Computed example of a mutant assay.
Amino acid sequence: MDRSLTLPELVKALRGAEVFRNKCRIRPMAETFAALASACGIPNGDDAAAIPDGDGYLLLAAEGITADLVRQNPYLAGRCAVLANVNDIYAMGGRPLAMVDVIGTPDEASARELCRGMRDNAARYGVPVVGGHLLRTSRDSSVALAILGRAKACITSFDARPGDLLVLVTREHGQWLADMGFWNATLPEDDASLVPHLELLPRCAEAGLALAGKDVSMAGIAGTAIMLAEASHVGCRLDLDRIAPPAGVPLIPWLLAFQSYGFLLAVSPGRLEAVRALFAVPGLATAAIGAFCRERRIVLRRDAEEAVLWDLAAQPFAGVAR
């Protein structure tokens, strides 16, 4: 545990992070679509939209990749587009079916690299890219993917309850990409376990072990916990003493990092051991790192000291709630 910063200094650093500001920029869109979402009965703000269908749900999601990454490394950007979308479906307790892409590029070379990245990672996850759209742009390249999945039972962002434990599931082995704030736990040597580890999420949903959760997104553990609490209209406490970054990774970057395999789950205390048992496979780590509460504040706790990271009653974060 990094003791070089006080809790107020940790709060200041997290609140000032660009990934936090980016999540706050969702608010105007959330407000714009709020009435439509209510009319349709499908709330916005989840990892994927859950559309009732027969005895389960169709899951629909989309992800775009930052322009800087597309510009610097179009192949990696294509791979990341697949990763982000596949995680969104599994985070909901579903299984992905197929993807389509939208590519904007001024040259054929960038388009080919984007497509090659998508093709290679789609093959790793066993999810086909079945179509898409190509735009000729005058300057920058861009890429976005949409994905369709299906779930028998959902893990949502809207069903965390006071008293539930906040449980983090991660892959222990990985590579820290400090310049990208990215914990890459999907290395080539992990191909055999990649999908089996993700399959534990729908198994968790179908067994009723967790009703709520999210994948650890670009706002990291800290920002994702805020979004999960906000969507569920609750608060939560993050116990920093229970959060162990990988060797060589400082605490603040770890709290803000995107994880290629990282999920936060809301688990009732009576089901914690069953969740631990489900994810007790080689390569995975499961830890209860906090708990949800009625008071709509996200609090950091270290030893006996506490500091408010975000007061949702006073200020929205992404502005998304049921």
Rank of each mutant, 00 (worst) to 15 (best):
V143C: 07
T32I: 14
D179G: 14
R237L: 14
E113W: 10
Y261G: 13
A207T: 09
A210P: 06
P28Y: 06
A212T: 07
A285I: 10
M218I: 15
N184P: 08
K214G: 02
L200H: 03
M1Y: 14
G220P: 02
P250K: 02
D140V: 08
W176F: 07
S157D: 11
G149F: 02
G319I: 03
R237V: 14
P8T: 06
A49N: 12
H133D: 11
C204Y: 01
P128K: 03
L211Q: 14
L198N: 09
L278C: 08
G220A: 04
L14T: 10
M29I: 13
L200K: 07
L114C: 00
R302A: 10
S110A: 10
L7P: 08
G78V: 01
N22A: 14
E273I: 09
H197G: 07
A210F: 06
L168A: 13
P245Q: 02
A77M: 02
K23A: 12
G93W: 01
R124F: 06
A111S: 10
S217C: 00
A153N: 08
V249D: 05
I103L: 02
R271K: 15
Y125D: 06
Y57G: 04
D101H: 14
H197P: 06
D215T: 14
A81Y: 01
R139T: 15
L83D: 12
Y90R: 05
E273H: 15
W310E: 03
G93T: 00
D46V: 07
G220L: 03
V267C: 05
A151M: 01
I42P: 05
G223Q: 00
A185G: 08
A225Q: 06
C80N: 11
G54F: 03
V299Y: 04
I89V: 06
I155T: 02
A288N: 01
D303E: 12
L240C: 04
F279P: 03
P43L: 00
N184T: 10
R242L: 12
L194M: 06
I226G: 03
G319N: 02
A37H: 11
I155Y: 02
I221L: 09
A50H: 12
R119K: 13
H173A: 15
S142C: 12
G181C: 04
G248H: 01
L76N: 04
L69V: 05
A207R: 15
L135A: 09
T32M: 15
L312S: 00
G262T: 00
P246I: 04
G54V: 05
L145I: 07
A247R: 12
D159F: 07
D107V: 11
A77Y: 00
M118G: 02
I298R: 05
R296L: 03
N22Q: 12
E230A: 06
A318C: 12
D241W: 00
L135R: 10
G270D: 07
F33A: 13
A109K: 12
R27E: 13
Q259C: 09
R116L: 09
I221P: 05
A212K: 06
G104M: 04
M227A: 13
K23Q: 11
A212F: 04
V275I: 08
P316V: 07
S268A: 15
T186V: 09
Q315A: 12
A35F: 08
G16S: 02
E295T: 09
G149Y: 05
C236L: 01
R150A: 11
L272I: 02
D140E: 10
S260G: 10
D46Q: 08
P74R: 03
S217K: 03
L284R: 05
H233V: 10
V100D: 08
A111F: 09
G132L: 00
L284G: 04
R116M: 07
V19W: 11
